[in-house]
Each structure stands twice: as C-alpha cells, then as structure tokens.
Design a protein around this nucleic acid. Structure first.
Lengths: 213, 213
DNA sequence: CATTGTGAACTCATTCACAGCG
DNA sequence: CGCTGTGAATGAGTTCACAATG
C-alpha cells in the first residue's frame, strides 16, 4: 500500500489541487480521466501526476486511466479530509470574520466552531454565522471543551506570537497563521503561513522585470 | 552588480521575509546583523541568507555583517517595493473588505484604489476606507483611468475566471487570486494564488501522520 | 579574526523513457 | 493499443567548506 518513501511537500499541495479538478470532472459527468488530462487541467505534467499518486498506491487502470470518483476517495483518505476537523479562529477582525463565513471551509469539513478576540466590544457578540465570540482568555478551556485541533491566527502581527503560545499551551499543535509574522513554535507543532504581503512582494519583483525587459 | 543567474523563486520569498526582520531589528536599535543572526530570526540557514543576497550584489562587510538600514534599502530596490503599486480588488465580500481595510498593505505601498463588484446592492456604496464600490462592468475604464497594475480576485470561485479575463482585457497582467480555483491566463500574465483550502489540506495530511505516528 | 562570498558537493524534486499490463 | 507505474537521468535548490578580506 503506502510506500514509505519521503514524500515532497509539493506533492501534497498538488494532490489537493487534483482533488478540486476531480470534483469538477465528476460534476461535468466524466467517469475516467487520464494523467495527461488531469495534468493539463492542473497546469502540470502527466508524469508528475502519476508519480504523485504512485507514492500512495496504484489507483489507475493501464490503458484506461483513473476512475474519477474512486480517485477522489483515495485522495480524501490520503489527505485525511474524509473526516471533520475542528477549527478555532483567534482575531475576529475583517479577515477572521471572512473565514467564519466562508462556506467552502465547512463544506470541506473544516468546521470553524470557536471565535476568540480580546476586544471587549466584540466579546459576547454573535457572528453572522451564529457563533458567539469568546474572550481569548478562555481559549484554553474552550479548546479542551470543543476539541479544537487547528488554530487559525488572524490577529494583528503584534499579537500573533502571544496567541500562538496560547494555542500551544492548550495543546493545539497545528496553526494556520495569516499574520505577516513568522511565529516560533516547538518542533512538535506544525505551522502553515499564509502571507499575502510576501505574495505581493513577489508580484512586485516580477512585474518590475517584465517592465524592464 | 546584478548577476544574471537564474534566481530561485524561493529566494524572492525569503528576501521579503528578511526585509520584515530587518525592520524589526532597526526598530530594536540594531545597526548591524550577521547572516547567522538574520537566518536564525527567519528560521533559515546562514549560507542560504548569504547566497540569496549574493545573487544581487555584495552588501555585507566581511568580519562584520550587514548594515541593517542599508540592507533594507537594497532589498526594497530588488523587490521594487521602493515605489507604490496600484491595486484593484474585484469581489467585495468579507475577504475583499478585509483587504481594503488592511493597513499593512497601504503602509507597504500597495494602494487599493479601486473596488469592484457585480452586486447592485453593493455598487455605489462607500467602503469604510472611503472607496466607492464600482460596477465590475466599468473595470476596463477604471483600470485605465487609475492606472491599476495589479488585480486582486476575491470573488467566489465560479466568477474567478471571468474576472481574470476582464483584468486581462484591461491589460492588467499581474493577478493575486484568492479563490480556490486555478485560473488560466496567457503566458504574459503573472498569477500568484493564495489558496488557504490547500494549506488546510496540508495541515490535515500532516496532522494525521503525527497522530498515526 | 570574524564574517562574507562562492565554487563544489549534496540533497531534493521533476521529467524522461520505457517496461508492464489491462 | 494506450496509459499506467517506475527506475534512471536530469535539473533545481540547499548546504558545506573554505578562500578572500575589511
């Protein structure tokens, strides 16, 4: 089954993208798809698709391709998105509110079930999604009560590390950090950063070159 | 000066991160910093720091390190963030509104100067930042009038490609795409995707392994 | 003499090319 | 026959190790 070779992080990213395209293919009525077609849809390379899948098993039929429904199920299992995950969001500004209302998240099993802030004007209020905003001081207890597994940081940069520490203390060891600050965590904790100021810097860099060329 | 070797994309990403740390170092009163210290702050490797900078010139002093202020200026120039860029945001939902109010963007010279939507209930309204929401149909004209250089897509997935096409038609050839859809653009156009559903899938994948281990 | 700058070594990721198979 | 699965070849990116030097 699962080969125990070291799997590139980029492979996981691509599996997530393949999955999205498979949903669309199913919606469009396709039953089978070749690595060539899937690669084309995902702006990738067919050999890459096959290798990515090959890390986890043999899901295709030679001479035919991959079963669209079947492969979705396999990828869901690989990514462990065939279950729900409980999320807590800290920092209910514009971005935090956006995430709370994001229908795509719950549709995919990422359930935002707690909202925290330190602003007394916000605490106790109910979000449009019907979630009561809690005092960040109660994070520890709430994480335990609601079995929160993933912490989302949408605070201003200055508060990011402190909030990360609170999550860590509550034994949440996966964080999604939207602040443009690199947070420091122990080895056991896993952090993904989403920093759009970095992305804008990259656009700036490349645009300049295009103009200069 | 600028060596014309092929520069890894990851190098540009790191330059952006170095820059942030240099700001903090300056704020804390540091005048000089070594590659070792900067690497430590950015959770990287000293040789990597030196190599990244080495692509663009010799900014350090052997035996001493890098001048904190000086190096900031160099990186700003390299990334072309020593000037302003004009942004237009399409899709004024929660996420779009969040970006419009994001003080960090304007502070860094990314000026959100136009907001578009196709919802007649939103068009004509004024955002908290004092920007009037325009009809997406007027995108072409507005891009020209305001000299918009970067298009930001914060629409639902289903509208992302159509909006990208509008930006392209208006000769905006840099897009920041927040929708979880891969958009298709001609070679000349540059796209950066920010897809937090992919990041969550990665967290899910890795969490599962940690639990399994 | 501490720290930079950089070729060489190495590690990791992608692509090729073809054997294997339905 | 066509497409998958995969070892081998290539390519890209990172780290090492040390000469260069203010």
């Amino acid at each position: 089954m699962t080969k125990s070779a070291k799997i590139p992080k980029a492979t996981i990213t691509r599996l997530s993208i393949y999955y999205r395209q498979l949903e669309l293919l199913e919606f469009d009525g396709y039953r089978m798809v070749s690595s060539e077609k899937l690669a084309w849809l995902c702006q990738g390379n067919p050999a890459q698709v096959r290798k990515d899948l090959g890390y986890f098993g043999e899901f295709g039929v030679r001479g035919v391709g991959y079963d669209v429904i079947d492969l979705q199920a396999h990828i869901k299992r690989i990514l462990a998105v065939n279950r729900d995950w409980n999320l807590g969001i800290a920092g209910i500004g514009n971005l935090g509110s956006a995430l709370l209302q994001h229908q795509n998240l719950s549709a995919r099993g990422f359930r935002c079930i707690a909202a925290f802030d330190n602003d007394s004007r916000k605490i106790g209020k109910t979000t449009p999604a019907g979630l009561k905003i809690m005092d960040i001081k109660d994070l520890d207890q709430t994480v335990e009560d609601l079995k929160i597994e993933i912490g989302v940081i949408t605070t201003p940069p200055s508060a990011a590390q402190a909030v990360a520490d609170l999550f860590l203390k509550a034994r949440v060891n996966a964080l999604l950090n939207f602040s443009p600050t690199r947070i420091t965590v122990p080895e056991c904790c896993l952090v993904e950063n989403i920093d759009f100021t970095v992305k804008l810097d990259m656009i700036s860099y490349e645009l300049q070159h295009e103009i200069g060329a």
